[in-house]
Design a protein around this nucleic acid. Sequence first.
DNA 1: TATTGTTATACTCTATAACTATA
DNA 2: TATAGTTATAGAGTATAACAATA
Lengths: 138, 138
Amino acid sequence: MERPELGYLLTRLLRTAMAREEPILANAGLRMWDYAVLSALTENAAPTQAQLAAATGRDKTRLIGNLDQLERLGLVTREPDPADRRNRVVSLTAEGRRILERCRADIREMEDDLLRDVPPGDREAFERVLTRLVDPLD
Amino acid sequence: MERPELGYLLTRLLRTAMAREEPILANAGLRMWDYAVLSALTENAAPTQAQLAAATGRDKTRLIGNLDQLERLGLVTREPDPADRRNRVVSLTAEGRRILERCRADIREMEDDLLRDVPPGDREAFERVLTRLVDPLD
DNA sequence: TATTGTTATACTCTATAACTATA
DNA sequence: TATAGTTATAGAGTATAACAATA
């Protein structure tokens, strides 16, 4: 039998992972993109919305709706940058960080379950390859 | 640094893979879904469109547009099943198979290039895990 | 004039529910 | 009546371009 294609395998696996992730996020009142945006803010606040859009691979115009809701939920703040008042600095609130960490823990648990039958060595190689293939694209 | 999440990595990698795959398919006059449908027909013709829809993870109503175009391009045929004339058997034409094989070869080449810096052992483990995680979902 | 964020518009994709033809 | 395929409709998601505020 021929080896299945990467695109096929990745599509299928991502579909599964997302199906398992969705209820976790919904439980926190979030959709997939909301979570991606929160995640991008973990380390540092985003100096501009355009940069945040680029970091998440989202269009800058579509990011706006997400930020509107996240702000409404009290999970992020948008504050004008005093140095250049065209920019709006987006940051996590304490509540935003709390929600984010909770989702993270639940998702990690889900992933461990998804990978439970994979031998540790294979899992390490798997994650190593994934990381390596993704990193250079930044 | 914390390990990045599966969903994040898969999304990024799939995005890259698709970006590289799109021009190959466009070169053959196909879109992503057309290719997925053709691929599903490699081994056998699909006895019903509903089964083909299920096999490709596509909605049966959305499959129709794809089949319309693939038929227009002369890549597949839809023939009423004599045993039950409600069913329409979908098969590859010779031309369909030719186009499919050409795309396949190009895509395999693209994948080899994408994975060129991955050590062979890691690559094998990577594909083994992907396959294993996807298979049980059938 | 150029840039950031926003809004508006049209376009595509998707989901649901009718419709037809066969059974 | 039930099912396979089709069509129609509305909704969500997306891309593009215009707009307002600031530089």
